[in-house]
Simulated assay, not measured.
Amino acid sequence: MSKAVVTDEKLPDLPPPSNTVGPVHWVKENLLSSPGNIALTIFAAWLIYMLVPGTLDWTIISAVWAGGADACRANPEAACWPFVWTKWEQFIYGFYPAESRWRVDFAMLLLVVGIAYLMIEKTPGKRYMGLFMLVIYPIIAWILLYGSVFGLEEVKTNKWGGFSLTLVIALTGIVFSLPIGVVLALGRRSNMPAIRSICVVFIEFWRGVPLISVLFMSSVMLPLFLPEGVSFNDLLRALIGVALFSAAYMAEVVRGGLQAIPKGQYEGADSLGLSYWQKMRLIILPQALKIVIPGIVNTFIGLFKDTTLVLIIGLLDLLGTVQAGIADPNWSIKSVPYTGYAFTALVFFICCYGMSLYSRKIEEKLHTGHKR
């Protein structure tokens, strides 16, 4: 017969039951918790079994890693990575002059350093660095890439290409689409009918046409409406089209965040005597933008992938330079096209997944207990 013991001392915590922790519990809770989950788990395991071994064998195990085109011809049923090593500079710089590629490298280095500075926690002067990256850096990058000033040789934009051109288009669209989208979202919710109508027409027009049509319009039709002797650079036309197209989608994302803010926040700001712009800048927009971080980043990721469409107007981004390399008769090998597209997919996945990871970190940092 056991005896009851009464004590004022704190007893040590007991470990949790063995059936509520560990990998076995995780499998039961997440993979085998119901008949439907069991069926989905079996189906996913079958897909992995069918796809992953063959993919790993083609891309890594049996792939050709060294040598040239002859080595790939000897093994045409596996990935031909020497194609990527040989065309590497073309994939990065396009047809940018070799003697001036240091300018592209320096612009990319500034970009990486600036982004890393903003991502590292507790670094001083982040506000000023953010302003530098938004305002000063684009000017520096354009001077470095285009030249014609400070003794730099001019490099026409038709020689730009590869991954560097992809970054130029994507970053320009990202930098300009967010502020324009915020203004359009505020305008669509304005009490002034003229402002609201203009914003509604703008948003619905750009959302109602595909990006391919926008690029064709900017490249082929726009010059017909310009005065004689006035012209825009092909790349500049594409940048404007991509930025305005993305801004229309961004406006709807931001508008969703504005509508999610409780009415009491607006009334509280009005009761403090704040002006419209003070209310938006200090109270409403910070909350709205925090809510729609996933939607904003989703739009950015879509924009980054849509940069490949500039190929149809003659601008060779990363995908365009890869296709140009595939067309090289010296690399007329069965596995070369698949290798080139696999390389392109990997680069885009790394960039897009990096943006997704960073957005999740921002969400975790900014959420204030309302996250479900």
Rank of each mutant, 00 (worst) to 15 (best):
T7N: 09
L11S: 14
P17I: 08
N19D: 15
V21P: 02
G36K: 10
A39E: 13
T41E: 01
I42D: 02
F43V: 14
Y49H: 11
L51F: 14
V52L: 15
P53L: 08
G54H: 11
T55N: 06
L56M: 14
I60G: 07
A63W: 12
G67T: 06
A69E: 15
A71Q: 08
A71W: 07
N75F: 07
N75R: 11
P76M: 02
V84I: 15
T86H: 14
K87W: 09
W88M: 15
F95M: 06
A98N: 09
E99R: 08
S100D: 15
S100F: 03
W102M: 05
R103P: 02
V104K: 00
L111N: 05
V113H: 01
L118I: 05
M119W: 06
I120N: 04
K122M: 06
G125P: 09
Y128F: 12
M133P: 00
L134N: 15
A141Q: 12
G147L: 08
S148R: 13
F150S: 11
V155N: 04
W160C: 13
G162S: 07
A170I: 03
T172Q: 04
T172C: 11
I174T: 10
I174Q: 05
L178V: 14
P179K: 03
V182W: 00
V183E: 09
A185C: 03
G187E: 00
R189M: 07
N191D: 14
N191A: 10
S197T: 14
F205N: 01
F205R: 03
W206I: 01
V214G: 03
M221D: 13
P223F: 04
P227S: 08
F232R: 06
L235C: 05
L236W: 12
L236T: 15
R237C: 06
A248G: 04
V254R: 02
Q259L: 11
E267P: 06
L272Y: 11
L274H: 08
S275E: 07
Y276C: 00
W277L: 13
W277E: 10
W277R: 13
Q278Y: 04
L282H: 09
L285T: 03
L289K: 11
K290Q: 10
I291M: 06
I296S: 01
T299I: 08
G302Q: 04
F304P: 00
T307D: 04
T307Q: 03
T308G: 10
L315E: 09
L316W: 09
D317A: 07
V322Y: 05
A327M: 12
D328E: 06
D328R: 07
P329Y: 12
W331C: 03
K334P: 00
K334H: 04
K334G: 00
S335F: 05
V336Q: 05
V336P: 03
T339R: 05
R360T: 05
K365M: 04
T368C: 00
K371V: 07
